[in-house]
Amino acid sequence: MNWGSAGEFFAMGGYAAFVWGSFGVTAACIVVEIIVLKARHRAAVRALPANSAGQP
């Protein structure tokens, strides 16, 4: 076990900004990409031409 307390864990031995800046931005990238991809798929389906029955 590396950490005596939660505070120690978040402090990352004085490198908190660098370590959490790396992991945080990576997590944000992943979350944003998934949201963007879902939205793109939804938009693509919505933009399909109306079917023969003439509904919008």
């Binding site: 991809l37 798929h41 693509a44 031409p49």
Partner: peptide, 27 residues
């Protein structure tokens, strides 16, 4: 992520094909 984007691209590009139109009707 690639597969998700691929599905969107397929719909965007094949929008005038019959099977994609059928997809819309099903949804």
């Amino acid at each position: 992520a690639m597969l998700m984007r691929l599905r969107a691209i397929i719909i965007e590009r094949e929008r005038n094909s019959d099977w994609v139109k059928a997809l819309k009707e099903r949804q």
